[in-house]
Design a protein around this nucleic acid. Structure first.
Lengths: 201, 201
DNA sequence: CATGTTGCCTAACATTTGTTAGACAAATAT
DNA sequence: ATATTTGTCTAACAAATGTTAGGCAACATG
């Protein structure tokens, strides 16, 4: 007797887990149904099609990611603070919903062409949010003369990779992971004689 | 009248391109055959099964990646040199064969269980090669006190991400990309007053 | 010339896929 | 009590999947 109120949400979550585990194409409607202890046909009283499931998950996550970076740009002023906060929000979203994040990160390729284009537009917006922060940091003379494109790609790839190895029962929480990555991204690997250049607000 | 000498290699290359574009599950034997202007059944005179194609590609690339890091550890002595060279080799392998690299990076999940285990063992070996270099750098006091696991994951994720955006007709070649990433990884983002600590060999 | 090999073909197969139609029971509303 | 909605079921579908069997033509080898 499953709680009938949010059956659709259950389907989305179950589907996300299976999409993540086996990939969108390899996870069948019957797999999803079996995981919920119902028949495949029953799913269609809640959702229109398999593609609709993918679309809902991808666009829902895209909006969540986007809203966090908008928030960061509204609240914080210093580029380093902004970057640390953007990374933290990203890590939080990924660790708090690994299944749906994985679909957002990898399975969007299976979106039908029309949805695919709008999805890529949203993803580009998100990347531009990061690029904007890096550019600000360079202009404010807080960051060195790096290539913004490379910096953003490196940051996002590091931060997305979390999804491949993070286990909820591991030793680190989102905050610690975010701090480690932020420190690494900001500080780099090579040992230096360092004096931070203070910035005067 | 296709050159019959290396027909199998052609199949592997065509399959790799399709596996990359659509994913292993979504790319059918008929798709591969059509791309080669033959019938699906004809493929089976050259390969045993669809899974065999995947296995050959994954393990071939795994061996290539592994051999480069062994080479690096044989030739170079300084940790920074080793790391730069390892990154360069990695970038070269990816840019020189994007299709097969993409399969190695993403489609191995579809390997049958037995192959999967040996594959993951090889991949672990490769990651450990990098981790070894980072540890050496810390011991030699060339690198700062970073968490090797994080450093390696960040480096590899950055370097693997190349496969998502690199276009052979783009402005940058493998060497330039590798230098950019190496500089970023080693130097980080934050501006500092820097004096390199010379190491005395 | 005969012989075997190579590479491809057509035809067919069992299975799995996403999806629809229609029925039945329980819960809810009137 | 009656009517309606909701969630599930069984049954079935057309299409696509990986794969096999058997045959035919071109070529190389004895």
């Amino acid at each position: 007797m499953p709680d009938t109120s949010n059956r659709k949400a259950q389907i989305l979550q179950t589907a996300a887990a299976l999409f993540r585990e086996r990939g969108y194409q390899a996870a069948s409607m019957r797999d999803i149904a079996t995981a919920m202890h119902i028949e495949a046909a029953s799913l269609y009283h809640h959702i229109k099609s398999k593609e609709e499931i993918l679309e809902i998950i991808c666009f829902d996550m895209a909006e969540q990611f986007l809203s966090t970076i908008v928030e960061v740009n509204d609240i914080y002023f210093n580029a380093e603070e902004k970057l640390r906060m953007a990374i933290l929000n990203h890590v939080r979203l990924i660790t708090q919903n690994q299944e749906r994040s994985a679909v957002f990160l990898h399975e969007w390729r299976s979106l039908p062409e029309v949805s695919l284009n709008s999805f890529l537009a949203l993803r580009n917006q998100y990347e531009n949010g990061f690029k904007q922060i890096v550019k600000e940091g360079i202009e404010e003379d807080i960051f060195g003369q790096v290539e913004p494109k490379f910096a953003v790609l490196s940051i996002l790839s590091s931060v997305n990779w979390i999804n491949e190895w993070y286990k909820p029962d591991g030793k680190m929480n989102a905050e610690e992971i975010a701090k480690n990555i932020s420190d690494f991204v900001l500080g780099g690997l090579r040992k230096k004689l360092v004096t931070d250049l203070g910035y005067k607000p």
